[in-house]
């Protein structure tokens, strides 16, 4: 078999640490020992594939999951999944979930005193196209309070889950909206030390994506780990 082409190691400041005390839930859940480094093997450079429709049909339109139209500002959310070298990541699964326009999740543990919307379920999925492209139609989520600290509010955000080509490229993240005043106060967003990396989670308004008299467009490109240029060892 051929040598293993490793995925690039993460840049420490470009990712959040495990322990970030301003986000209180990390205090009892972050491991105390630093992660144990291992060399990448077949186990890490392989991962599940979705090109054959295993994950089921796309659910790209979150505005038509109920009997009627959900309340809120319709948005088109689109972009590409790329690696660090700018190569598209085709045929990979994106799963997405979010609260409704009032800031409430359809979830038994969400007790925020804001209305549920019977027409908004808040979960979608697509498999990316040949150029790594994806597109969702949804509504803009609201901000909501959480008990992390006194009078704390999460900025409006949409959760994204991605696989990429390998176990090593798996990513779960959150997308935010440009200009949200809550970003400057949010310990989850601020857990990322590097400003450029942090800002890469903020979707930009894109007039070219907007659809006249229908929906505003936001662009969010997602960059998964790239690979080292050459195998680190020759074939045995």
């Amino acid at each position: 078999m051929s040598g293993i082409r490793e995925y690039r190691r993460e840049r420490a400041t470009g990712q959040p640490p495990h322990l970030h005390p301003p986000y209180g839930s990390t205090v009892k859940r972050a491991p105390r020992r630093p992660p144990h480094p291992i060399v990448q093997t077949l186990s890490e450079v392989t991962g599940p594939g979705f090109a054959d429709g295993w994950a089921g049909p796309d659910r790209a339109d979150l505005t038509r999951q109920g009997q009627g139209a959900p309340i809120g500002e319709r948005i088109i959310l689109a972009g590409r999944v790329l690696d660090e070298d700018g190569r598209p990541v085709p045929r990979t699964l994106i799963e997405l979930w979010q609260c409704n326009a009032a800031g409430r999740y359809r979830h038994e543990r969400d007790q925020h005193d804001a209305p549920l919307d019977p027409n908004f379920f808040g979960a979608g999925q697509v498999v990316t196209g040949a150029e790594g492209e994806y597109r969702f139609l949804t509504i803009k989520p609201g901000a909501y309070p959480w008990r992390n600290s006194d009078n704390a509010w999460r900025p409006a955000h949409i959760h994204f889950s991605l696989f990429g080509p390998a176990f090593a490229t798996r990513l779960v993240t959150q997308m935010y909206f440009l200009g949200d005043p809550l970003l400057a106060l949010d310990p989850i967003f601020l857990s990322i030390a590097d400003e450029e990396a942090r800002q890469s989670l903020v979707a930009a308004y894109d007039p070219a994506l907007s659809q006249a008299e229908f929906a505003l467009g936001y662009r969010f490109d997602i960059v998964l780990r790239g690979r080292e240029a050459t195998p680190l060892e020759a074939a045995p």
Partner: peptide
Amino acid sequence: MTRTATPSQTVGPFFHDG
């Protein structure tokens, strides 16, 4: 390397439907 890898964020408590 030309692009910044998208940082991770927590899955949060409300992932079940997603």
